[in-house]
């Protein structure tokens, strides 16, 4: 299945990637090739086969409700792009 320009733009918006006009054309081509490969799935006789999300189909192991973390803010923020007074900063969001 081929993708059109609009679809590529929509996907890029959802994924927060900038795609200019040249990129868009290239993506249409490359993603179209990959989708052609993926479309081989259509041939699979899946009927009402249950989807397999995890190979071993185990169930969750639950953790005790205990506070085990300590404040590591300084270590975590050491490589952060922009912080002030312990906050992470981003360009102002107009609400």
């Amino acid at each position: 299945m081929a993708l059109d320009k609009n679809t590529v733009d929509q996907i890029a918006t959802l994924a927060r990637l900038s795609v200019d006009a040249d990129d868009n054309a290239a993506y249409q081509d490359e993603l179209g090739q990959i989708l052609a490969l993926v479309d081989q799935l259509d041939a699979a006789a899946t009927g009402d086969v249950a989807p397999l999300a995890h190979p071993l189909e185990l169930t969750a192991r639950l953790r005790a409700d205990e506070v085990s973390e300590t404040d590591q803010r300084d270590a975590f923020q050491a490589t952060a792009p922009a912080v002030a007074s312990g906050y992470y900063l981003v360009p102002k969001v107009i609400d």
Partner: peptide, 20 residues
């Protein structure tokens, strides 16, 4: 006492990002 997926405290009103 702790968060849904981590062992951080859920106490209200701590210093910013000190319980992350």
């Amino acid at each position: 006492k702790s968060k849904i997926f981590s062992g951080s405290s859920t106490a209200y009103g701590a210093e910013p990002n000190s319980q992350a």
